[in-house]
Write a protein that binds this DNA or RNA. Sequence first.
DNA 1: GGAAGTCCTGACAACGTTGTCAAGGTATGT
DNA 2: ACATACCTTGACAACGTTGTCAGGACTTCC
Lengths: 371, 371
Amino acid sequence: MGGVKDFGMDVTSRNDTVMDLEGDLEPKMAAPRAIPARPTMKDVAARAGVSLKTVSRVVNHEVGVSPELVTKVESAAAELDYRPDLTASNLRRSDRRTSTIGLMIEDVSNEFSSAVHAGVEDVARLHQVAVLGASVHEDPQRESDLVRALSSRRVDGLVLTPTAGDHAYLERERANGLPMVFVDRLPHGIDADCVLTDNAEGTRLAIEHLIALGHQRIAFMGGLSILDTATQRHQSFIDTMRQHHLPINPAWVVRNIKGTDEAEKVASGFFAESNQPTAIFAAQNMITMGVVRALKLAELQHHVALIGFDDFALADLLDPPVAVVAQDPRRMGQIAAELLFERIRDGKISEELHIVPSRLVIRQSGEIRPV
Amino acid sequence: MGGVKDFGMDVTSRNDTVMDLEGDLEPKMAAPRAIPARPTMKDVAARAGVSLKTVSRVVNHEVGVSPELVTKVESAAAELDYRPDLTASNLRRSDRRTSTIGLMIEDVSNEFSSAVHAGVEDVARLHQVAVLGASVHEDPQRESDLVRALSSRRVDGLVLTPTAGDHAYLERERANGLPMVFVDRLPHGIDADCVLTDNAEGTRLAIEHLIALGHQRIAFMGGLSILDTATQRHQSFIDTMRQHHLPINPAWVVRNIKGTDEAEKVASGFFAESNQPTAIFAAQNMITMGVVRALKLAELQHHVALIGFDDFALADLLDPPVAVVAQDPRRMGQIAAELLFERIRDGKISEELHIVPSRLVIRQSGEIRPV
DNA sequence: GGAAGTCCTGACAACGTTGTCAAGGTATGT
DNA sequence: ACATACCTTGACAACGTTGTCAGGACTTCC
């Protein structure tokens, strides 16, 4: 249990301030400024010569206040620069909404995540709701800490990309009235609303495109298989190859690749052998970039076909431009947020699954024919 | 004036719910679930058989509670899945801190902005503070709406990238106790702490590098000159050229370029003339990308030198790799956040200016010599 | 002219928590 | 045994706001 933050130090320093001002004759300037008191409704009421409640009514645009008082209150509020205090308001209001939602994504600075963020923000803005964003960095501990922190801040709901761990613990949060929608990955241990890319279909499109060009020796490079996005893409690769009766060379099916550098090494490994794949399917962003590097190094970028999963900025400016299965992360964020607001509104708990289609973006690297 | 959100609809629908349950005999399932009541300290106190205040003490790790009661309270809290309510806590606490700060950046999904976001988050996490992030999209109206919204949510402070407009209005917010730090751009109409890239120095480095290679015909392509980052880069370009007694061709100094497409057009315009620049300095991210496109189209990418301001992912994978003046946006976010927490702690208002150095990242496009 | 209704306004409690203070218990010193 | 100090605990007010309700001024109707 325990508080979210230890305020001990702050409190002490504040007491010190008070002592300074009362106890001795140091000039006020030397002591840290007291925290300025923000004007409250009470202040506005006093200045406008009305009751507290009337100010509340004006601020909330309730009907039935005489125009005269409305202007009086409004100008008093403007003069004082009064801002309603949402934290107090939420405490009292019957619906207890904070007009704030939490967003937990892999990393705010990663291209995919921040597109999701943008999508969530699009929708949140329409609802006049603020977004508390946080990066999980694939750390289950951090994930649950963040859920705690956001829950303590009484967010109205949560959009999150689950880490690999177990998510049964979220069941209790949800039971306590915290709606949540998952994005990009299916959570484990809880049935909940979820917005996913069509990983299987996207992969199938890419592989069949390569097959249509005549490729038979296709390598698969995948990410961490604890993530089911990675697993789905891998499975779809296997299925598609089998459906087309193509051999799968186990040496060319590498999973659990982490990061650009590792991907580069793996791809370079392929090219060092006499028996080389004629096409590579890179099942994730970072992996694609690693492969691009390796191809360039081996000067094979115009000889080995490459299709990546997930689009990235400038993919079309590389030499050759890199073909990808494009997801629509912004759309995913929008859908997730819309779904969340629906749940917040009707208070229902449900387990809807939204699949956002992925599409093959044809660029030159995907048009290279086998030698 | 006015409330931040109109809760009218919600209130109505809630009344409806109550009516349903009381008024007729419909099964409960059909009506929207009532909002589940989250356990409060009172519930925990009742279950543990202690007073409210004792629970408060345990939750906040105050000393002087008997170990026996501590365990009793802790297990009661765990059984109920109690979460302290920060909004109520903040309302009562003497320091009135929400442990939340606001971050207003250009666009959460833009590479530079989200790196700043990541930097702010790095520091915020150390302080156990949550970040309310929002995109301003270069809209002054939106900016001030957001400030209002964040101020109403009683954030402890603000990190923001100011738009082009006037920021005198923020003076009043600050006077009402809202500390703020600006990033990337100097605000107008208010003296405040600010974290900036060394635009002049970075530009000088780039231009002098080109000059050292023998370039004399250097074009400048800049962004919106209402932004002073753009103005500073432009001014530094002019100064550096003058210092080296090089002619400035007005036709090659284009400012106010907006977006990739426009940049591409401008650059293509250069190449259509018989008299061409031998080097281009692109003073902003998007512009650089547009130039890359234009160069490729004109097949001049190996003949005209290019240096851009601000690094971007994959710049080193392009053909040729693109030289840039690299800023350090993540570091900027970190510094801004550190500065903000300092101000929050000591309550001081000041006008410190932090210049984060930029550095020239030499890549092939910047090594092309004039013909 | 009085009863009934409408409109506008304000007093007061309450939201969930923490700060303050006092009460009761135990330990210590004489 | 008594006074003193300390330690632990709880009662109560308060933070800034909104929900509830009641009261006063006016209007309307018989």
